[in-house]
Every structure is written in C-alpha cells, then in structure tokens.
Amino acid sequence: MHPAVLVVGGLVALVLSVGAAATLGAADVSLVNVRDVLLNHLGLAQVPVRVSEDAIVWQDRVPRALVAAACGAGLGLCGLVLQSLLRNPLADPFVLGVSSGASTGAVAVAVLGIGGIGLSGGAFVGACLAFALTLALARATRGGTAGILLAGLAGTHLFSALTSLVVFAVADSDETRGVMFWLLGSLEGVRWDDVVLCWAVVAVGAAVCLGYAGRLDAFAFGEEIASSLGIPVARTRAVLLLLTALVTATLVSVTGAVGFVGLVLPHVARLLVGHAHTRTVPATIVVGAVAMVWVDAGSRVAFAPTPLPVGVGTALVGVPVFALLLVRRGRAS
C-alpha cells in the first residue's frame, strides 16, 4: 500500500472513528447530534442542541477519543523507534522502565499524600527518574544496546517493587482500588488540555523521527554499519531514547499504563508499507490512532456503565494480533 494512500485514508478513518466513538456510551447520542455539536463548537454552524448532549459530546467523549488516538499514535511511534534503535522486535516504550517509574510516581502522590503536582505530575516525575536510572546503569555498564535493555529491565522491576511496597504498606482498600484502576490504564476524566498536551508531544515526536528516518534505517543494519555511514551513533541514540522517554512519560502520566500498543503497532505498519522509516513513521501514527480509538470505545461499552480499563482492552486485542503476526512471520521464514 502506498504510504500517502494509507495516511490520507487513515486520517479520514480517524475523523469518522472519533465521531462514531462519541455516539457510544450509557447516554444515547446520535451521529447527527455529534456532527451538530462539533460544527457548533468549530464555528461552522449554529444548530440547536440540547445542553446535556453538548456536554456529553464536547466535554467528555470527543476529548477522550482524541486522547486515545494520541496515546495510540505516540506509543506506537515510540515502539517503532525503539525496535529499530535497539534492533529488537520485542522492544516497546516500557522497556526503559518509564511505565513502572510513572506508576511509582502516581502512587506516591495518591497514597503518600505528596501534594502540589497532582497524579499526572507525579507520574511524569517518576517516569523521568526511572529513565534517568536506566541511562545511568547503561552508561556504567558500557554495554551498548544490550546494556540499555538490561538496565531498563532492572529499572522496571525496581520501580514495580516500589509501587507494590507503597500500596501494600500504606494504602487502604479505597486507595488501592483507585491506584490499581489507574495502573491498568484509564481515560476517565480527560479534558481538552490533555488533548492539547498529548497531541503536542506526538507532533514533536513525529517531526523528530521523520528527521531521523535515514539514521533509523541505518540502525536497522547495526551500529557498526551506521557508524561507517558517518552517523554519530552515540548522539543519535541518546536523542532518540530521550525523545521516546519524554513522549511515553507524558502519555502515561495522562492515561496510565497502556501495554501492547508500542509492541504490536510497529509490526502492523511494517506489514502495510515496508521497513523504510519515511513510510513506517506516518503509517504507525495513523494506524495507532485509529486502533486506539476503537479499543477505548470497546472498553467503554463492554461492561457499561462500568468502563473496562483501557489497558485491559489493549492486552485483549494486542495479544491475539501479535500472535497472528508471529505465526505469519514464522511461515514466511
């Protein structure tokens, strides 16, 4: 499939998916009502709409769908970069320990009562601390790509243990329930400022990755070949690792831990457009955005009125898809 066709088709599918997702929920809202609300707020029409429907669509469902789309696009993009940079098809955004660090930061705010920065702020601080630890360990071991993976694994287990320790030792039953729901991924209560923040970091990430597309292509053949082509390996790796950490930390601080997105979507994009990063970067973004909107919509209505944590939904969908990709790859080899 030509990448331009995929991107244009994906953007159209994203607009339609957001509109369709806005109709789903405990309160019935028709697609016509969604259209009218969006046209009113975009200043393109003045159609009478009930106040309740306007609030449901504009203040709740549309921001939620757009944040879900940003989460799918951003985490998928980070997974693509890490899989190419580390030459590991199993690498995903959480391999750097960012998710575990974010969980610890969020728990510290919610359970220990560390005030002033909020749950999202605590998650972001924890994610950055975990990434700093990963880089420090990798630098100390001088293990290159393998050292980064092992340092990320160590950081993941350390911060997961710290999270469990705080919850076990301090949290009461209500706090534990709230923390566990967040750790499984939640898009409840997102607002328009979250939409702006998430899409801003995704846009920056996409621009940088497209600028580094040629270097990522070279990294796929190994660091020695990349260096022989005149690419500053250490600096490129540091820039891209920092970028993926910041994008992941920002998204996780808003949505909680959402797994399998960064692992599966890059493989789907490569299957559709090949391995050149000028193609896979935009393909991963649009495929991830559309897929995540529908996973979130399904998670929201599966056990309505109680929403299923979106991280559970991504795992239920991601595992079978990843298994199919593995089978297909095995048969092709």
Rank of each mutant, 00 (worst) to 15 (best):
H41P: 02
N33S: 12
C78N: 12
P48E: 08
T248Y: 01
Q46C: 02
A151G: 11
P3L: 02
F124D: 05
S84Y: 01
V258R: 01
A146W: 10
G205A: 13
A203W: 12
A102R: 05
T163K: 06
T278M: 10
R191T: 13
M1A: 15
L150T: 14
Q46R: 08
A106D: 02
V37W: 06
D217K: 09
G116E: 07
A332S: 15
A283T: 13
G230D: 15
R300K: 14
A123H: 01
T134Y: 02
A304R: 04
S120Q: 05
R50I: 03
V317S: 05
A127N: 11
C78L: 08
V167Y: 05
P266C: 01
V167M: 15
V37A: 13
A234D: 15
L162C: 12
A302H: 00
A245F: 00
R235V: 09
A234I: 11
G116R: 05
V81G: 00
L197N: 07
A291Y: 06
C209H: 03
G10R: 05
T176Q: 02
V201T: 13
L24W: 09
G256M: 09
V261Q: 03
V49N: 02
R87P: 04
V301I: 13
L44P: 00
C209E: 04
A45N: 08
A68S: 11
L197G: 09
P307Y: 01
G43A: 08
C128S: 14
V125A: 15
A140W: 08
L90I: 05
F159A: 01
G76N: 06
V37T: 14
T244K: 00
I114H: 11
A102D: 06
G152A: 09
A138M: 06
